[in-house]
């Protein structure tokens, strides 16, 4: 087996709560691998730290501990020029494409700027590359003349991706890339990720709350709750046989468009709210809301292989049975 392209070990990102001076543990010991040319999913509810993880990976937040290894080298101990060139290999796609583009620049200018940053000095070469990049995201080259506000949401998001591609990345970190788009145009952007993977071997960390979208696109999935990974594995195995009670609850909440199914389905309704990441519960972080929590859950949960293809961090994986 080859080494993963991006290998994250025990990553921690803490913020200081300015009011109390305590640490907010947004990411608290995350280990995660992304292989070359692989789409990996990261799911969880808002506030679980999945966005913070993505932002830490591209240097928008400072890590408090752990390692981010790209091609075997730890980014967190790297400096200067080397850090600068390595960092660029990991690019980020924001949730809202409109606010991640400058309103005062045309799309062509924005992409050209990214090329200048990447060290392309020749203006003619830059313009040729802009056309290539727009083509790579299936946008006509006249789009280069447009301002972001003159484009549709799907076009904007594809333009953002084209700009990221200007840095010749190996990994795209996509934070809710389609949640601000209309349902009927989400496919344009999602299929683009599949295409970029197939044509350029671009790896992708797909951070999303929509479990169905992640399932369809990603070959492997991580489920995150309150700063920790609860369950991870191949999509087929994890979705087909979810073992962690949290994953089960999440999946049971995904609505179906079939009203007949929807009428007589069983949901695992979780009690209470997500606890504060300042003082997370000891042991299993989910135990306060878990329907099958036992006293032993106050100790750190073991990582148990559910089957050959996926593992869960739980004392009782697969023990929560859906009634009915």
């Amino acid at each position: 087996m080859t080494d993963p392209l991006l290998n994250i070990v025990d990553l921690k990102t803490y913020f200081r709560d300015t009011r109390t001076g305590q640490n907010i543990k947004a990411c608290d010991g995350i280990s995660l691998d992304i292989n070359e040319g692989e789409i990996v999913g990261l799911v969880g509810e808002s506030g679980c730290g999945k966005s913070t993880l993505g932002r830490t990976l591209v240097g928008l937040e400072d890590a408090s501990g752990g390692e981010i290894r790209y091609g075997g080298e730890n980014l967190l101990t790297m400096h200067g020029r080397k850090l600068h060139t390595t960092r660029r290999k990991i690019q980020y796609v924001f949730q809202d494409p409109l606010s991640s583009l400058s309103g005062r620049m045309t799309i062509g200018q924005a992409i050209e700027e990214a090329l200048i940053i990447n060290g392309e000095r020749n203006a003619a070469a830059r313009r040729a590359r802009v056309v290539e990049l727009l083509e790579a995201v299936s946008l006509p080259d006249q789009i280069a003349e447009r301002y972001p506000r003159e484009m549709s949401g799907g076009q904007r998001q594809r333009a953002c991706i084209a700009r990221s591609l200007a840095a010749d990345p190996k990994v795209l970190i996509c934070d809710e890339p389609v949640s601000s788009l209309d349902v009927s145009i989400r496919a344009q952007v999602m299929n683009l990720f599949l295409k970029l993977r197939d044509e350029f071997g671009l790896a992708c960390l797909l951070i999303a709350h929509d479990l169905a979208i992640v399932r369809q696109a990603a070959s492997r999935v991580y489920v995150m709750y309150l700063g920790r990974i609860m369950e991870e594995g191949e999509s087929r195995a994890l979705y087909g046989n979810p073992a962690h009670p949290y994953t089960q609850a999440l999946l049971s909440a995904v609505p179906s468009t079939n009203p007949v199914e929807e009428r007589d389905r069983q949901r695992i309704l979780l009690k209470g709210d997500v606890p504060s990441p300042i003082n997370p519960p000891s042991g299993c972080r989910f135990r306060g809301r878990c329907p099958i929590a036992q006293p032993v859950c106050e100790t750190p949960p073991p990582t148990i292989a559910v089957d050959q293809f996926h593992v869960a961090a739980c004392h009782f994986p697969g023990k929560l049975a859906l009634a009915g």
Binding site: V183, R186, A217, V254
Partner: peptide, 17 residues
Amino acid sequence: KSVPSLDSEIGSEFIGL
């Protein structure tokens, strides 16, 4: 058809308008 469901084929293309 554009709404992805938990029954769609893993790794398949997304359907949209």
